[in-house]
Design a protein around this nucleic acid. Structure first.
Lengths: 131, 131
DNA sequence: TAGTCGGTTGAGCAGTAGCTCAATTAATGC
DNA sequence: GCATTAATTGAGCTACTGCTCAACCGACTA
């Protein structure tokens, strides 16, 4: 960190043209503020959600459920991903934990549907990529 | 797959109340369509983007750059994440590859800024999580 | 032109993610 | 009650991710 701060100091001298040593503290503060404004625990949640989506099996499930705009049975979902029943169950449980999917038991079948969060995210991700 | 199809068959019999074996083919088709409508190569890109974001170091960098609404020098970014200079460089290069960040050389310094894609995604992710 | 500094690249290592297999739970039917 | 079926859980294995270290490239400066 010491070396990094020195570098930042030199950078600021370079950018600002002058050499106020306070500038470094100030800048570090600003950067710290940017980071802090984010709210560390929210970031954790966001990372959990992103990690849940960043996997082919799980993302496919979410996209299919969002596209379906309806509940789908586990056995239906099994038809769209290429993993074992066990793998599918693990995947779905991860998605539930991330708040991307909700499950409901119906007799001996279990049905899942996408949450609003999933719909919002998938919509934007699709949109921001196909340009 | 064979067993899975049998299960789907039973499920459909159960749901539809009757037993048309075409129903299975039909349903498989519908599911296949849902999946296909997605466009497999776009999904690959989306997964790349998601994977790039789903890491604390990289996500922090993106969030800071988005919040900054400005270019930041590598040496400034070094102040907000807890990795070596090398690790930082690797992280940034991953983000560039995912189209989330753009780099520009300025003399002997290098500056990065968030792309529109990054802004769009971060905004929605923040929004969809803080409810 | 040699040296220094900012940043990148590649190799290698530790930790975790994602899968399967086997065992288990819960609901239905005989 | 026992068997069957849908789905979940936990253990364990492999493969990949993310980091660091060391070497390197390019731009500025003495």
């Amino acid at each position: 960190m010491a070396r990094a701060t020195e570098r930042l100091q030199r950078y600021l001298e370079d950018e600002l043209g002058e050499c106020r040593s306070e500038a470094v503290e100030e800048r570090l503060d600003e950067l710290g503020t940017l980071e802090a404004a984010i709210g560390p625990e929210q970031v954790d949640t966001e990372l959990d959600v992103l990690s849940a989506l960043a996997n082919e099996t799980r993302y496919t499930l979410v996209r299919v459920l969002v596209a379906a705009e309806a509940e789908l049975c586990v056995c239906e979902l099994h038809a769209v991903v290429d993993v074992t029943e066990s793998g599918l169950s693990h995947a779905l449980s991860g998605l539930v934990e991330a708040g991307l999917v909700e499950g409901r038991k119906d007799g001996r079948w279990k049905k899942y549907r996408a949450t609003n969060r999933a719909v919002a995210l998938v919509t934007v991700i699709e949109g921001s990529v196909d340009e």
